[in-house]
Amino acid sequence: MEGDYKFRINNLNVFWGKAQALRSISIDIPANRILGIIGPSGSGKTVFLRSLNRMNDLVPEISVEGRILLDGEDIYHPDVDPVKLRKRVGMVFALPVPLPASIYDNIVFSPSLFRIRDRKKLNHLVETSLTSAFLWDEVKDRLKTSALRLSGGQQQRLCLARVLAMEPEVILLDEPCSGLDPISTAAIEDALGILKKNFTIILVTNNTKQAARVADNTAFFLMSEMIEYGATEQIFTMPRDKRTNDYVTGRFG
């Protein structure tokens, strides 16, 4: 794990009401790499992801303790505006949620929030982000039709393109392929492989094979704790912890 770190997380504890959802997580996430997070459902992967762009703020029952540094800056510091943070740390949800508007309007949703009005620039953004999400060729002739008419796989790639158009630094993906067919899944995985040149990517997945395929580093979560973290190859071929071994070889989870 060389290079500089995008996120440095120290002793992160998250509580959901009285229950503890994450237990003292400390992890440094290198820039321009894909981090895969694996683990059975309910292990705290999603809560962890949503701590990184403060989406957890929207759930009043959740409280977050510990330190999360983004480029050395504490994102839970009172002076930090969560809205500005979320512009830097984009997110793709498990189920594709296109807004009920045209494909074009979905992509320009975020740029237009930041007062980008120039048509040429918007058109350019739409084309580049759809291209990066491997969707441009399929939709370039019908940008003005409703995004709701796309297939599930196309919708999820649209959601990825929508995040790219925001021009973030980090992209969080929360089981983005859980409802998709193998071809759409492959398209998204290919896209991620190229995107990591420009972005730091954190991919939560239920599919261990997916992590093995695309992630540079992998973290294994189990019952609110991070059991093991290392280079993907090491996690999958010679895990240090027995529980990691059991999980990646499919003995449980």
Binding site: M55, L58, K84, K87, F93, V97, V163, M166
Partner: peptide
């Protein structure tokens, strides 16, 4: 749907922008 609000927030919208651009139109 609540997911529309989530998407809007995750794309960097403020509460007021979410209300104006996502909640009220729908």
């Amino acid at each position: 749907p609540y997911s529309y609000r989530e998407v809007s927030f995750s794309l960097g919208a403020t509460l007021w922008q979410t209300v104006r651009k996502v909640v009220l139109p729908n």
